[in-house]
Write a protein that binds this DNA or RNA. Structure first.
Length: 535
RNA sequence: GGCUGUGUAGCUCAGUUGGUUAGAGCAGCCGGCUCAUACCCGGUAUGUCGAGGGUUCGACUCCCCCUACAGCCA
């Protein structure tokens, strides 16, 4: 029986079209999912959109269309971005889908019945102009709307609440028993110190002040308010409380399935406090891990449409290819911390890691095999020269490290290991100096061994990089003359696999970029939206 | 204001439980090679390890205080 793995992205709020920041998070998840799948894990990868709420209702009204029409439009821009970035999600959940609506309503009923949800009233500072509530701290001592600056008034409306307080001890105990539940750990301290220790407030889970939401069956003037709706996507997509819940049985109920939610810092609280509680209420298992990823920032701060500093993924993909963009996202920002997008770093990454390192290794190896052995990869005969053994060992060690780091979700580090191997191979060429061996007929066996080793390392590197290189890894395997069956992950590290293969010379894997020119080009992409915003 | 975290070479960062000359990548400089996408390889400089105090035979690593920055505060 193969091991199971379920990974989710946050469900995105389609109030505006997505940018490179959205692509960052989803791409990282995709790389993890593809990596697990490649290694034989029974993997399920979910992404989706969170389509309810007042803001969507307002945006639709402003455009003179229905909320459903509005989200249908924006969601298309998300799914086409996922197509362009080659996201391999197994499903796409939309909270407006019938399957999700039903599950949420049934969950609400269950919790109501159990007494975990109760009717009370929501009190807050209400701004009539913005039609929204603010908290005491948000309105400040002057009691002014933080959005429009108008005076707010204290108002209440009937609302259902989820009784968090009764589970806060359970939650602390859960954290203690599952020390890796929240990554990075500093986020856990934040949650404990700011919310749990001072006493958890019950969570408002319904509203009557707007309509664009899932109606509460028992009390239809209420719609389910944000988190009970949104978080549920992770199980509604699997069929929880639906006719066909086979996926749910497979990827949620099976205790051997590892479940990982990747989230942004802004929604940590909901995923690490309320979500485990909701599940506990329903008598369901909790996820293994909530991974809080960092942000891809711009020089002037957070990337966002409204700030006018967001950069689109499309022109980058079109000009540099999807592999380069994916590689940049994985390599540049260590998964879990923030990073800054700059044209200089983008071009540098592509040139150094892709063109000079792996691309050039392939190119020079292919050329030498053609030149010295008429394009046939020589037979692998173990360690012929003293330089061979260390490269062979490094290759095997890299596979081990790669797998271990991947399983810890140290994505950036795991691929850095592969790049280290590629660097080692380049050094190995330098040290063994095949051009010198070629001039000495008595060194023929050594020369053969060098080529055999390089070919094997190229296959292994290409394979390990395949979750990122959705098109280029195939090119590497093509160059090595490999059949489809030979490209399986099981062959990674199996020296001798490529004996006698016929090499195919191809165009450079990643063309080297003209630094100045490309930096200027990318900078022009970054400037464009700002001008638009100013106009 | 409260809580948490960070501050190490020009840049991005590693530094396990305190222990010999503080590391990597990139940029810089010098040199080598030619199979290769002017690539690749080797060598090399620079650091009061944010400031100050303390514990210790010995602290980047522990304690105190100060400072700058960041995150969170429903």
């Amino acid at each position: 029986m193969s091991k199971k793995f379920y990974i989710t992205t946050p469900i995105y709020y389609p109030s505006a079209s997505p940018h490179l920041g959205h692509a960052y998070c989803t791409t990282l998840c995709d790389v993890i999912a593809r990596g697990k799948r490649m290694r034989g894990f029974d993997t399920y990868f979910l992404t989706g959109t969170d389509e309810h709420g007042e803001k969507i209702e307002d945006n639709a009204k402003a455009k003179g269309i229905t909320p459903q029409q509005f989200v249908d439009g924006v969601v298309k821009s998300f799914s086409s971005l996922w197509e362009a970035t080659k996201i391999s999600n197994d499903d796409f959940i939309r909270t407006t889908q019938e399957r999700h609506v039903k599950t949420v309503q049934r969950i609400f009923s269950k919790m109501l019945e159990k007494g975990d949800i109760y009717l009370s009233s929501y009190t807050g500072w209400y701004c009539v102009h913005e039609e929204s509530y603010w908290t005491e701290t948000q309105v400040g001592p002057e009691h002014l709307c933080p959005e429009c600056g108008r005076p707010v008034e204290k108002k209440d409306e009937p609302a259902y609440f989820y009784a968090c307080s009764k589970y806060s001890d359970w939650l602390l105990d859960f954290y203690a028993k599952n020390p890796n539940f929240i990554t990075p750990e500093s986020r856990k301290n934040e949650m404990i110190n700011t919310f749990i220790k001072p006493g958890l407030l019950d969570l408002c889970v319904s509203r009557t002040s707007f309509d664009w939401g899932i109606p509460v069956n028992e009390d239809p003037k209420h719609v389910v308010y944000v988190w009970l709706d949104a978080l549920t996507n992770y199980i509604s997509a699997l069929g929880y409380l639906q006719d066909d819940d086979s996926k749910f049985k497979e990827f949620w109920e099976d205790p051997d399935c590892e479940i990982v939610h990747v989230v942004g810092a802004d929604i940590t609280r909901f995923h690490t406090i309320y979500w485990p509680m909701f599940l506990h209420s329903l008598g369901l298992r909790e996820p293994n891990r909530v991974f809080v990823h960092g942000l891809l920032m711009m020089k002037d701060g957070k990337m966002s449409k409204s700030r006018g500093n967001a950069i689109s993924a499309y022109p980058l993909i079109e000009r540099y290819g999807v592999d380069a963009v994916r590689y940049y996202l994985v390599a540049e920002v260590p998964f879990g911390s923030d990073g800054t997008f700059t044209p200089e770093q983008f071009v540098m990454r592509v040139n150094q890691d892709l063109a000079n390192n792996i691309g050039n290794l392939l190119n020079r190896t292919v050329s030498m095999i053609i030149k010295y052995f008429d394009g046939v990869i020589p037979e692998y005969k173990g360690s012929v020269s003293p330089l061979d053994g260390p490269l062979h060992d490094k290759c095997l060690q890299t596979i081990k490290d790669y797998e271990a780091l991947s399983d810890e979700l140290k994505v950036t580090e795991s691929y850095e290991k592969v790049m280290d191997l590629v660097r080692a191979a380049n050094k190995y060429i330098e040290d063994s100096a095949p051009w010198a061996l070629a001039k000495d007929e008595s060194k023929r066996a050594e020369l053969q061994s060098v080529m055999a080793h390089l070919a094997e390392v190229l296959f292994t590197s290409g394979k390990l990089l395949e979750p990122i290189f959705v098109t280029k890894s195939e090119k590497i395997f093509d160059s090595l003359g490999m059949s489809q069956e030979e490209r399986s992950y099981e062959n990674v590290g199996k020296f001798g696999l490529l004996n006698g293969h016929i090499i195919n010379k191809q165009a450079p894997l990643f063309p080297r970029l003209d630094e100045q020119k490309e930096i200027e080009y990318i900078a022009s992409l970054m400037a464009a939206p700002k001008e638009k915003a100013a106009a």
